[in-house]
Design a protein around this nucleic acid. Structure first.
Ligand SMILES: [Mn+2]
Ligand SMILES: [Mn+2]
Ligand SMILES: [Mn+2]
Ligand SMILES: [Mn+2]
Lengths: 160, 160
DNA sequence: CATTATTGTTTGCCAAGGCTAAACTATTTG
DNA sequence: CAAATAGTTTAGCCTTGGCAAACAATAATG
């Protein structure tokens, strides 16, 4: 196969993390499965959380607001609302503002809480506000309870 | 719009992180856009990184190995390989082991490096190895360079 | 070397999550 | 109160990323 394996072209500080051998197949598989599962609920959580936030801060949650805050077309939002309805997370009448069902409320609260912990942790670490918000928006869905607890503790310590 | 605003029903420790008002629309939109963009490349990166790791640690990367390590059907892998080929990331002949193109190598190296930084950071924070691996698999795709640098620094400090 | 086992590919199916264009409803305003 | 504007939904299209089943190639084995 010739010569190459260009591989280690970093003179980085990490001691060539390929020092980590491949994990056993089943464990490795569980990693990817967990990520796939997270991706199934991610969008739903973001919608529900946003709807909850709009209700809290604005008093109402309209499809147009969701569309502009998510940078997505109104058609996309409308379709998603239908799904959230079917899932029993929102209650909506055509052409009117949205509301969350109790289940939706619960999900919104849980998501908001988790999101906040991750965001505050990043801030405590020293990440700038804008970046912290961007990173938290994605990271929040991939943080286990174990890690979340550690983040919370770290943030509390830091706040002395 | 009637009466309700069911809102705040948590007695949580976080000082009601809704103390964070909604960010300006454009900034908020950029958060979600960044996440959507990450999700477009995520899977590709995971495949390429895994292929690179298999080549490094096993000397060859076969579709069957990828399928079992990702807990996905061989059909799915086969289809994905075709895409990676079209993207110029892998070079493959039917029924033979895979190889990475230079572009693929570069992506594999970059992904592995970033993945390693996140993983080691979580370990340094005190997260258990298994959990750290699971969380890192998802988080790695949502961590900005700014945050990455801070994680790296934290890990180095911790290692004294 | 013939058979069986393993591995890889193709095909056809599905759901999610985007989009645009067009139709419909509600609200505002002249 | 009619028309214009703003908001919402529907229809139809596309790409991704999954699957199972049938088929093809290669490898292993008696
Ligand atoms: Mn999010
Ligand atoms: Mn993600
Ligand atoms: Mn990775
Ligand atoms: Mn990953």
């Amino acid at each position: 196969m010739s010569h190459s394996i260009p591989s280690s072209q970093q003179a980085s500080k990490t001691p060539l993390q390929s020092g980590d051998a491949l994990p056993p197949v089943e464990q490795h598989a569980r990693q990817y499965e967990t990520v796939r599962n997270a991706h199934e609920t991610e969008l739903i959580e973001d919608y529900v959380e946003l709807i909850g936030d709009l209700l809290l801060h604005r008093g109402e949650a309209r499809a147009a607001d969701i569309a502009s805050r998510m940078a997505v077309s109104q058609a996309t939002v409308s379709k998603m609302i239908r799904r959230l309805n079917e899932l029993g997370l929102v209650k909506s009448q055509p052409y009117r503002s949205l509301f969350l069902t109790p289940e939706g409320q619960a999900m919104a609260n849980a998501s908001r809480e988790r999101h906040g912990i991750v965001l505050n942790f990043l801030r405590a670490l020293g990440v700038s506000d804008t970046t912290a918000r961007i990173d938290a928006e994605g990271m929040e869905h991939h943080v286990s309870d174990e890690t979340l607890a550690i983040m919370q503790r770290y943030t509390d310590e830091k706040a002395k």
